[in-house]
Amino acid sequence: MVGKLPAPMKPWRDNVREPAWRRTGKTPDYRFSLANERTFLAWIRTSLALLAGAVAVDQLAPNIAPTPVRLVLCVLLALVGAGLAALSYRRWGQMEAAMRNDRALPFSRVMLVMTIVVAVAAFAFAVLILVAR
């Protein structure tokens, strides 16, 4: 621990191909790195929940709306889920890059957009459930 290695993460072979931003600044405290990793995973789970919701509505509630409407709604929900997975990777990188260079953590509109998407989807399905019966 005395002679500090310049390469922060020696032990693993798979950091040979790290993105360029990983070699900038200084390696953050492991607690912040791991918290960032868990935040990434929380977003990934949100994305998985949207996917599960999309497939579940399609299969378990076939009469919720006419087939084309139901298909479009479910495919849209699944698309948002897949896109959110990509966004969570990007956000993970942005967060760590900011920590490495002692910048403020980037503000992201993803949270606002996701709030609106989930609220609109919930409202739409609530209306459909009411209309379907």
Partner: peptide, 13 residues
């Protein structure tokens, strides 16, 4: 407690 490699995170994404 090292940070995850970018490759692991990318593969899971």
């Amino acid at each position: 407690s090292h940070a995850a490699s970018a490759r692991l995170v990318l593969v899971s994404t």
